[in-house]
Structures are given as structure tokens and as C-alpha cells.
Simulated assay, not measured.
Amino acid sequence: MKGRLIVPMLGILLLGACGTSEMGASSKNGSVEDSAWRTLKKVSGREIIAELKQSVQESPDREKAAVAQTESYEYKEGLFGKPTPELAEDMAVQAIEGPTAIEAVEKVYGGYEGFENAGILFFENQMSGATQPGIWIGVKNPDERVQKLLDELQPKVDAGEILAEPIYIFRSPHTQKELYTLQDKVAQALKGMKIDRGSYGLSVNTITGIVEINHDFLKPEQQKELKGMFPDKKFHFEQDGRMVAEPGESSIIIPEKQFTDTPVTDGGFILSAGEGKIFVAGGTEGAVFYKFPEADKLKVGQRVKVEASGGIKTSYPGQGSAKFVEIMPDYKPSGARLSESQAVGKVLEMADGESAFGFYVIQKISFNENEHMWIFNVMQDDEELMLEIEDK
């Protein structure tokens, strides 16, 4: 998986906040409109209210720092995408102008929390398709601090340490603090709509202010109701997998045929089931304990595919909730006495107490027709083993 281009400094990609009354300021550095803080121009549809001046033709320090980005491991190995001049400049802005602008913003506005109450800050990259890439500093209600911000940054442009062009100061329609508050209110509303085993992800887009919700339980009428609670906000809903089962409906998917004489490779194996939990491991599934209300209807040894609801904790074994459990057809070769699930049950009896984790991770199962033997390739405490079970 390719990495995302981010600013390593301060763990910040997004800042924000709520504003003060509009005031004017004289222009000591850069360019600021008159006392009404009128728009200088529009860039990418945003109202630019102040600009830095590119006062020097050459910036050797900045160029040196930019070249260093192209020599980095991340750039050469393509961790953020294919190495291109566009990627190199995106990385340079985030490594040079980005930290400098963030430091100036925090100094002028009283730290991270101070700027949350004044505006937003984000990056847009050429590699993501931005027409005007750079660092964007949005202020909802600009005051004299905008001039102080210019006074902090312009000397660094004059000294050739940073470029003026990638830094945009604009009038933001919202603040990060406002977005956080909106997100909390929407979360409270969602809690009242959430059903058992349903899950959702919620965020408010810093740039657009759109409320983005991915879910597996919200019906169209609930989505409409949610929009009605926040009539002046825009929502984007995205369904995450299948919708959870309705009350009274089973979340267990039964195969059309109980047995098959064709080997099955999909799914993992139920190693334990009961008391509202199942433990599934091996095959094509990871080792995970799932909360599942219908656990008592499942049997140890069954091969299943699990659709999780929400995230999986990264402990070993993992922990999560199962939305659906699909039982795979039980492999029973022609002439065999045992089915695959029955053979797995015998292997699990052997594993009891022998592994530090208390279980084998079954990687592969095959049936030797001539020897009437089930062959298991398993992992036990990071050691590969082969086990044989007689077909009787």
C-alpha cells in the first residue's frame, strides 16, 4: 500500500476555529486589502484576503531543501506515489513552507487550540489533482492577526527560505472548532438511530464542510431525518458493505448445499462458538474473536466467511463484531467417511493445551484418498507443522 503524503511536524494536517470581528490593517509586508478586508482575488473559488510578496528571484536555501526531498528514501521508493516533478514539489511544500507556516500560525494565534477558534489549515497537492496546490490558511473573521502572520512570514520569503506562492490566506466559511462541534452533534443524533451490531464512521470535511458518513444501518428515511436536523449542512452517505440484518432476521448465511465433493478454499475455521462469541482463524481469515449473538447456532470446525461490522482491534488474536457469518459448503470427498468440518474437530482436540495460544492456525487441508487420511498444514506458535487425521 502506498503511503499518504503528510506533514510529519506536529501531527497536523488540519487546524481550525471560530472568528473575531472584521478589522483592517496596513500592509507592512505582503499585500492586504483595505479596512473592509475585501477580497483581493479568487483562487480555486476561495476568497484570497492577503498575500505574501515574492521579493527575491532566487532562493538557494529553499532550492537546496527541495532537492533533498528528491533524494529521500520516501521519494525514491515511491512511498507517496510514482516519483515525478509534481510529487517532488508537493513534498517540498509540505517539508518547507508547511512547517514554517504552521509555526507562524501557532505563534500569532496562540497555539493549535488558538487557531481552532479562528479558522482552518490544510494542504492541497498536485498529485491529488489540485489546480492550486499549496498550504491554505483560512480565517473566518480576519482581524489584525492576519497582518501579524504576514509580518512573520514575509521576512522568510525575503531571505529566500520559503516561497510566497504556495501559501494562500483566504476567508473560510467555517472554523475547525465549528466543524468539531458539528461532528459531535451529528454523532449524538446517530447514537439515537444506531441498532445492535450496526456501525458507522463520521467525519466533517475540513475543506468543504460536508458531513461524511459511512454506515451499514441507516435507512433512507433515517438519512432524511438526519438532514432535517441540520438543514443548513450538506451530507454525504456511503453504505459500508451489506446492511445489518433487521430485528428477527438471521445473520447466518446458509449454503444451498450442505456438502460438496469439491475442495473449498475460501473462509476460515470456527475454533470456538458460544455465549455470544465465535473465534475464527486460519484459511483466508485472520485469527479474530467476534461478538456474534447467534454464536450458539454455529459449530466448531465449520468453514466460514465473516463480514465484520466496524473495525478489528489489532491485538492477537484480533477482536471485533460480526455482521454476517456465511457458512461454506462442507467438503466431503467421494468415499470419505469424515467431512472437512469433522476432521477439523479432531485436529482441534489435538491442539487443546499444546499451543501457547491454545489453537492451531490451519493453513491448508487436503484429503489423501489412497491412504484415507486428512492432511493438515498448520501453524503452531510460529512453527509450521503437518498433521494427519485418519478418515474414521
Results as ranks from 00 to 15, higher is better:
Glu58Asp: 14
Pro8Asn: 13
Thr70Gln: 13
Glu349Asn: 14
Glu74Pro: 01
Tyr75Lys: 09
Met229Asp: 10
Met386Leu: 13
Val304Asp: 02
Gly318Pro: 07
Val306Arg: 03
Ser55Leu: 09
Gly78Val: 10
Pro85Met: 08
Lys277Gly: 04
Lys194Gly: 01
Phe80Trp: 08
Gly129Lys: 00
Val7Gln: 12
Glu113Gly: 10
Met379Leu: 13
Pro60Gln: 06
Met91Leu: 08
Gln183Asp: 13
Pro133Thr: 06
Ile137Asp: 00
Phe123Ser: 00
Tyr316Leu: 13
Ser26Phe: 13
Asn370Asp: 15
Asp261Gly: 07
Val288Trp: 02
Phe217Val: 07
Thr260Asn: 08
Ala65Leu: 14
Ser31Val: 13
Gly241Glu: 06
Pro142Arg: 04
Ala189Phe: 02
Gly311Thr: 09
Thr131Gln: 12
Leu153Asn: 05
Ile167Trp: 01
Gly274Lys: 05
Phe324Lys: 00
Glu51Trp: 00
Ala92Gly: 07
Ala295Asp: 03
Glu388Tyr: 11
Ser366Gly: 08
Leu40Lys: 04
Asn205Pro: 04
Leu150Ile: 04
Thr175Cys: 15
Leu271Cys: 10
Lys191Cys: 13
Leu387Cys: 08
Val139Arg: 03
Glu275Tyr: 09
Gln319Asp: 12
Asp296Leu: 06
Gly228Thr: 14
Lys233Pro: 06
Glu77Arg: 15
Arg171Asp: 07
Gly248Tyr: 04
Phe359Ile: 07
Ala50Ile: 01
Thr131Ser: 14
Lys227Leu: 11
Gln154Thr: 04
Ala281Glu: 01
Glu256His: 09
Glu212Ala: 12
Thr20Arg: 10
Val280Gln: 02
Phe217Gly: 02
Phe269Asp: 01
Gly209Ser: 14
Gln54Arg: 14
Phe367Arg: 06
Ser55Arg: 10
Ser272Ile: 05
Phe289Gly: 01
Asp296Glu: 15
Gly19Cys: 13
Gly301Pro: 00
Pro231Ala: 04
Tyr316Arg: 12
Asn141Gly: 15
Gly209Ile: 12
Gln223Ala: 05
